[in-house]
Structures are given as C-alpha cells and as structure tokens.
Design a protein around this nucleic acid. Structure first.
Lengths: 143, 143
DNA sequence: TATTGTTATACTCTATAACTATA
DNA sequence: TATAGTTATAGAGTATAACAATA
C-alpha cells in the first residue's frame, strides 16, 4: 500500500504519476478501440458541443497551429470531423463533428477505464475539496 | 478566476491541465538551462541516490528498454552519468551519476519554476489532504 | 532458455520557418 | 499589415523486432 508523504515533491510526483498513468491507459484503450492517436481524441472531444476554429482549438490544446492542421486533416480523413470555411471570416476554418464522430465518442464513453477517470472514485465532498486545491494551485502557477 | 466544478470529468481535466502545464514549463526551463530534453532529467533524477540498472530505470519510467539505451547513451555523452557492467551479473549495466551530473542537478534546483512545483503553494494540511486523495485515486486506479 | 541491453526502423507529437489567402 | 491556416522539415519520444552477450 503506497502512502504519499506530505512533502511537496512527493505529493507532486504522486499527482504526476496518477495523471500520466491514466493517460497511458486511456491512450492504449483509445488506440485499441479506434486506431486513433490521443491528439485526435483531445480535439474531437472539444468540437462535440460546437464548431471551433483551428486557432481556438490550438490555443485550448496548447499546440502550434501547424500541428493543429495535421490533427484536423486526419480527423477529416477518418470521417469524424468536417472542416468548412467560416461564413463571416473566410480566413478561418470551422471544425465540426460528424455523425460518425458522435458515434465514436459515444462508443468510447462505454469503454471502462477511460471515462470516468480516477476522480470519479472520490466522494462528492472529496471532489469538491480536490477541485478547490487544483484551483488554488492553478492560480499560484499562473501568477 | 477559474472555478472548477465538482463534476468528475471537470475535476480530472483541471488536474491534467495543471500537471501538463507544469511539465511544459519545466521542460522549457530545463531546455534553456541545460539544453537537455526532459527524458534525461527524469532518468538523472533517479540515479542521484544510487546506481540503477537500465531495466530498473525503464520500468520506473515506464519506457521501453530500447528507449532507455538511447537516454543513457546521451547522459553518458554529456558526462552526467556513467554506465558500468554490474559486478555480480555481467548482463546488467549500472547507471550512476557523475560529479558533473550532481552539479547540474544542484543548479537545476536553484531555478525558480521547476522545483518547488505548484503543490508547494498549499498549506501543510492541504498537502496532507491532497496526498490522501491521490493515494485513494491511485488505489482505485490500480484495482 | 531466459534475461539484459543494443541497433535499426517507424510512428506520433511537436515546433520553427516560409508560404498562401483573406481581412 | 495582421491574422488563419498550410507545408516542409527537424527533433524529441516512443515502441517493435531482430540481434548479441551473459546467466
């Protein structure tokens, strides 16, 4: 039974390990279920709700615009997303999800291990406390 | 002011963002300070205390043995680590840190931003609570 | 035979720089 | 001029497979 001490470095390592391990697991499951690399899932998840410009997507994913082009190219080739010129500003491309893309996301949600993440095993009160701590750390990190 | 809701997915995304952002920041600072990629730092940090076999290192870093060879190659070339045949089992190579490697790690510790991580901004009680939550999530993730 | 490590190769992810098209 | 996106290229990180050396 692992016990993380309250030493800042130890706590941070525990946190990184938790996040990285889950990401590795999710990546593996995604690859198995869809043959798709992780970056595609990250992008597709965002365009589920509404159309995003590639610029918006790139900023949200903290990825360069050139990398974003490749990711969207691939999603379009796979038939999970569409890329259309923005009606108001022809410089922009709007990325939207297709029916096939929705089906895929729906399917992925049924896979155990990816969603819910480890956080879901906490109680509601614990999640609220964790959210508060994350907010505090983010605020400090951004300052 | 960002406020993470207690929805499991939202909390998890906040946690991932925090970890990934800090990793990006640390990577940049490391590159600037030493010209070294992140994987070298990860390995060097582990061999600070004692010699590790490459197999041990690979498992701890969750990296393939072939990738580990390249990482150690580079650390040896830079003069931060040494690779010697294990005295008891000639199949193994023991990776140890050099004086130059110790100096580098000592220097990196003085850089603001890398260490201490965001966790250090929490109070002692908050860190203990965070450590408890991380342990609980890890236990669930491993089950 | 099993284990440790190496080499060759390939794929993912990312950024930089130079480019095109549009505002 | 400034912004959105594309293309070419390069470096980091990783895994797979075939291999050599040692147990």
């Amino acid at each position: 039974m692992r016990t993380t001490s309250s030493d800042p470095i130890a706590v941070w390592m525990g946190l990184m390990g938790l996040v990285m391990d889950h990401k590795l697991l999710a990546q593996g499951l995604l690859q198995e279920a869809s043959g798709m690399p992780w970056s595609r899932y990250r992008a597709l998840r965002r365009v589920e709700d509404r159309g995003w410009s590639q610029r918006e997507l790139a900023e949200a994913m903290r990825v360069d615009a050139s990398a974003m082009s490749g990711i969207v190219d691939d999603l379009v080739e796979r038939g999970y997303a569409e890329r259309v010129t923005h009606p108001q500003d022809a410089r922009m491309k709007l990325v939207t999800i297709t029916e096939s893309g929705r089906d895929l996301m729906e399917h992925l949600r049924t896979l155990p291990g990816v969603v819910p993440p480890p956080v879901a095993t906490l109680t509601h009160a614990e999640r609220r406390e964790l959210a508060r701590l994350v907010d505090k750390m983010r605020a400090a990190a951004e300052a």
